[in-house]
Amino acid sequence: MTFLDTLLSMLSSELMQRALLIAGLVGVSAPVIGTYLVQRRLALLGDGIGHVALTGVAMGWLAGAAAGTASADALAVPGAVAAAIIGALLIEFVRDRGRTSADVALAMLFYGGIAGGVLLIGLAGGTAANLTGYLFGSISTVDSLDVWLSAGLAVFILGVGLGLRPALFALCYDEEFARASGLPVRALNILVAVTAALTVAISMRVVGVLLVSALMIVPVAVAQLIAPSFRATMGVAMVLGGIVCVVGLSITYFHALSPGATITVLAITLYAGVAVIRPLLHRRRHLRRPDPQHLQHLSRVGAVRGYPADTRADGHARVASASRGARSDAPRRNTSRSA
């Protein structure tokens, strides 16, 4: 069989179609929230949430076993969503309160989440294979319900991440200024946390809880190397995320590899490649170029107000000269207004 035949057979497999669709959705949406997390220096938040999500998966299993549902997996994703949201809100709460202990709190969630998950899956009668599927990704069992669920979550993530970009950028770039501008900082923080949790839940199927964060962060890290603005960073990261997910998943069709590991290694290879090539592409910028407009600005300043000569005068003379300056400015203002 030629490569082309294999490719065609992959694309005609319904399972693979669904899997590729989910991978594309996940690949495009995860970096959106990842861009905000990187800007906030919370790149590891996704990891913390992912670990907690594993406990959620295990609880879903236990609940499923108790309720006697046909498939032990049926409640795994809802369990992960619930646990991820609770975990994200917990982390946000800790971050908001005491900044100094935030990393310790994150560490607790890491260890607690993973240990709790492994313990509970054992109690629920899960096998090592089940566990590996959740840890490193497995989409050999996706059905059309999974596709719809993923599409719904992706729409939410993209809606929040792109629709509220100005406010979320303001928040992540300079939270203090966002607060001083009157932005509803607490509500926006909670929104970011919940959206991150949903991103983890949707990505878990494809890359597994241990590598969820890689999908949110590594495409952003690559984009950061080349994009000239925040907006461009997000756009480039979305495109790269989509590409590595689809390509990585396709590779696992040809070789029996873990999808999460394949996608992550692909993304990191991309990072290394771009980091090496970038200096070659980087055009020299003229950073020290004087700004002609600014120079013109200053020359007018001197002419109009007589600064800084006035500033050495004292007390009321200074105030008077300032108001005189404003007055002498007035006729010109009027002309330009009527013009």
Binding site: T35, V38, Q39, R41, G163, L164, R165, P166, A167, F169, A170, Y173, D174, E175, E176, F177, A178, S181, G182, L183, P184, V220, A223, Q224, A227, P228, S229, F230, R231, A232, T233
Partner: peptide, 26 residues
């Protein structure tokens, strides 16, 4: 206050000043 993490243009920083409690999008 901002941390130098990724490229952010002066325009993007300044446009953030247009937002307030009612305007989440300029």
């Amino acid at each position: 206050n901002a941390q130098p993490v990724m490229s952010v243009t002066a325009e993007e920083v300044v446009a953030a000043g247009l937002l307030d409690h009612r305007r989440l999008v300029p």
